[in-house]
């Protein structure tokens, strides 16, 4: 197995493991302001990616990301499927076969634009974008140290607590969505931490 393939396989194991460990927590966050299926949905999607890890990780970065994203679209079952699926598929479309840091920062920003279009959402609407956009800004500012990026992501997820949801199921709650962390922001922060800690060792 090539070094790239081993790194991709490790990334798949890391993201599947972090979603598995936090599935109940994500579900309980979603029970507060959504329909209570975020943890289970994400686990079904990332378990499917894990089950296909050997096949997926043998592909070069663009095809690997596109394949993983498509699987999330098909398996997650909630709105998170198309949103996370679009994120990974767009990353696959934007990244070259041998990506460097500058490629990553640029591709991540482009992938966020694709997620925004898919979800018809913007920053400060209590969604995963509230984590992804500050992380993109950190990468663009040259911050690639995994611990620093993870801190940015977790602080951004915490910052969704006082926000009022205007997109998704949580928006039906109006003011009652205030005071709860957005489950998609939390899952985004967990994924970014897991991905960062694998990439840093590479």
């Amino acid at each position: 197995m090539s070094a790239g393939a081993e790194l991709r396989a490790e990334l798949v194991r890391a993201v599947a493991a972090v979603i598995d460990r936090h599935a109940e927590e994500l579900t309980s966050l979603d029970q507060a302001i959504g329909d209570g299926d975020h943890g289970l949905n994400m686990k079904r999607g990332f378990d499917a990616v894990l089950a296909d890890a050997a096949n997926l990780s043998a592909k070069p970065w663009p095809d690997f990301l596109k394949g993983a994203g498509t699987m999330l679209v098909m398996k997650v079952g909630g709105a998170s499927g198309p949103l996370y699926g679009t994120l990974f598929m767009a990353l696959g479309k934007e990244l070259p076969a041998e990506p460097g840091r500058a490629d990553l920062a640029r591709a991540f920003r482009a992938a966020i634009a694709a997620v925004q279009a898919r979800g018809k959402s913007e920053r400060s609407q209590k969604t995963m974008l509230d984590v992804l956009i500050p992380v993109a800004e950190a990468l663009e500012a040259g911050t690639f140290e995994a611990a620093a990026v993870a801190r940015t992501a977790h602080a951004a997820a915490e910052a969704t607590i006082p926000l009022k949801a205007v997109r998704g199921r949580a928006s039906f709650l109006g003011d009652r969505s205030i005071g709860h962390m957005d489950p998609g922001a939390r899952s985004s922060a967990l994924l970014i931490e897991a991905i960062g800690s694998v990439l840093e060792k590479a």
Binding site: D37, M74, K75, G77, G78
Partner: peptide, 12 residues
């Protein structure tokens, strides 16, 4: 229904 048969929707 979602891909596990619970409430949800399934792109496929």
């Amino acid at each position: 229904g979602n891909p596990s048969g619970g409430l949800g929707t399934d792109v496929g």
